[in-house]
Amino acid sequence: MSGEDRFVLCMLAPAVAILGLLVAYPVGLLIFDSFFKVDTITPNIREWVGLQNYVDALTSKRVAESALRTVQYSVFALFFEFTFGFCAALLFSAMAGESRWHRTIFALPLMVPPIVAGLLWRFLLVGNIGILNYGLVRLGLIDDPNEIAWLSSEDIVIYSVSFADIWLTTSFVALVSYAGLTNIPKDLLEAARIDGANALKRFWHVTLPLMRPVIAVVVIVRGVDAAKTFDLIWIQTQGGPRHASEVFSMNIYQRMVRFGDLGEASASGALFLIVMMLLAALAYWKIWRPVHA
């Protein structure tokens, strides 16, 4: 081994060890445990059950519902984050050099801990004292401040809890998109303008295609984060009312902590992991790679 190889290994080794111990080994453990029936509440129960945990998870109505809710939540949140964030980035870049303060203030939610964001939005939406409904009354959109029960109506709660997520991360989308927009060469847009393309055409034929990699990164990173969300929803509703806002990660947590069913929690966790990897890989192949091919 050359001195150079030795150096590379020495520098790499601690990180490899840490990631091995704290990520690779636990993931292995997760998959191992998923084949056992383990009860953490009455100890010493640990028996091999093969794929039974997976069968149980895949056939459980509550698991299926929570998975569906995760999708609803992620798509809803991602759609609005993306729309608002991209529009904000377009506005900022249209303002050229005058958007510095706007961007600074707009970035504020990014620094707010998720727990605080969750609490805050719960406070804004909660029945009786939630100021949002009073604001809507003031604007004439609803008649009675108790008309919309954001967090206690089973039909809408999964969307209501995503407001906090949208508020918290729109600025991430905006800042990344803004950086992408400023990297688009000015002469390309000017060339299109000389060719007679109007603002809309320029956006569609020049800006959007060039922003594709940035959009891909945003969608992957934010999509994965939204699907993983736990704390934001937990602090607002703890999954209620009547599981109506229980997303997949929360379902796993409940089975682990409240029911002590480690085996089934592990099986669900492993499934979750696999789905996330597949989604990320798919997004990577479909959106990102074609641009770089």
Binding site: P26, V27, K228, Y253, G269, F272, M276
Partner: peptide
């Protein structure tokens, strides 16, 4: 490979990792 592994690690849901970390 190592950087790729780190990137993939970012996709792991914390709850999936939390369960075995508890054991560990």
């Amino acid at each position: 490979l190592f950087l790729l592994f780190a990137l993939v690690t970012r996709m792991v849901p914390s709850v999936s990792l939390g369960v075995p970390l508890f054991q560990l």
